[in-house]
Write a protein that binds this DNA or RNA. Sequence first.
DNA 1: AATTTACTATACCAAAGGTATAGTAAATTA
DNA 2: TAATTTACTATACCTTTGGTATAGTAAATT
Lengths: 210, 210
Amino acid sequence: MKRADSTKKRIMDVAESIILQKGFASTSIEEIIQQAHITKGGFFYHFDGKSELAYGLLNRYLSADDEFFNDLFSRARELTEDPLQQMLLFLKLLAEAMLALEDTHPGCLVAAFTYESQQFDHSIIETMKKGTLAWRALFSEQLSVIMASRKPRLAIEIDELADMLSAVLEGGIILSRILTDRHVLASQILQYRNYLRLLFENSIEVRTDD
Amino acid sequence: MKRADSTKKRIMDVAESIILQKGFASTSIEEIIQQAHITKGGFFYHFDGKSELAYGLLNRYLSADDEFFNDLFSRARELTEDPLQQMLLFLKLLAEAMLALEDTHPGCLVAAFTYESQQFDHSIIETMKKGTLAWRALFSEQLSVIMASRKPRLAIEIDELADMLSAVLEGGIILSRILTDRHVLASQILQYRNYLRLLFENSIEVRTDD
DNA sequence: AATTTACTATACCAAAGGTATAGTAAATTA
DNA sequence: TAATTTACTATACCTTTGGTATAGTAAATT
């Protein structure tokens, strides 16, 4: 078990990287094993097939993502007690983290799979759905705490506001990739941050919706 | 030329639909010709290969998209003279249009290609880039007119604010697909609309950034 | 009548996914 | 320390199918 230590991880790292560049369908097992320096037999020892690889990658991605967000939230919560300031700080840290990525281009496995969804089975689709709802829950939770003490200037649905962060991230990634400029992604996160500031910061007057 | 009249369009319609469901790589010519009721030879008469199809689809998509946005802007401009109200109305019409789509699920060809970009040649990537910059230009133009008469409550870059609409659309589409609920997309457009309202509507006081 | 358009019908090849089998060095367990 | 399991390498093979090429043809156009 010593030799293997990192083989499976290396396969997954290589596979994820290639998939984010060219999509799942056109990523061949051949290419994966070449870049991971193993043989086909080695690949099939760790994964029953390509579908199992997809499933494994997706689960690992969602876990890492969840940990990453929670870590940023923890750091933000250490520095301030005000829920709004925590969220604003979280977004600042997030934007900085996106700029500091060592990857050539940012990418989200869930988004990559979304546009190839028909080739995946039900369990993968369900996992993607659960992952997306987990993001919603994570952001909603913090927004709820904010709203417990502050009234937004416009009537909003918490879930929609939470989803907007996911949307801005997914969309920002796409724009960043097309324009080959990760500053686009960072700036979008800060736009969302602005929106929250306008909604919640230093209430001047509560305006009704239309 | 009479027989062909609509064949090429039918091929493209079928292809676009399948590609948005399962991605470009895993969309086989076989499947396209079956659904379009032609033979392989017929397909290659119209397109030199799969790459040419991608190129044709992308250009058609970008043209249609441009026309669609401009049409909505025209309708909005007929109803009000205030640039901000025009933009807010445009977004309302856009959100309604997204709900009224007859497609099973919304999709953007540019986004679909983005996560498979490595398999496309330079000209396609360039076209995607130009298309994205065209969206930025289109939205920036209207935002500039708004800012000519109104000061935003927070300092913002027009291009970033323009990109945010593209990002929200792309991200909203992805979320809608994952959650199989197009209301998510519509609601995200309206969130962006809220952001513009908070930035520009009825200036109460001009706040400085930080 | 000649040519071009818009196809149909066949055939073919390389690539890839997946499976199967034989072998082996290292680690674990008994 | 012997037996077994883990974690692989190395080959080979089968089948599917994506992509391309070529030959032929009916209808429309010139």
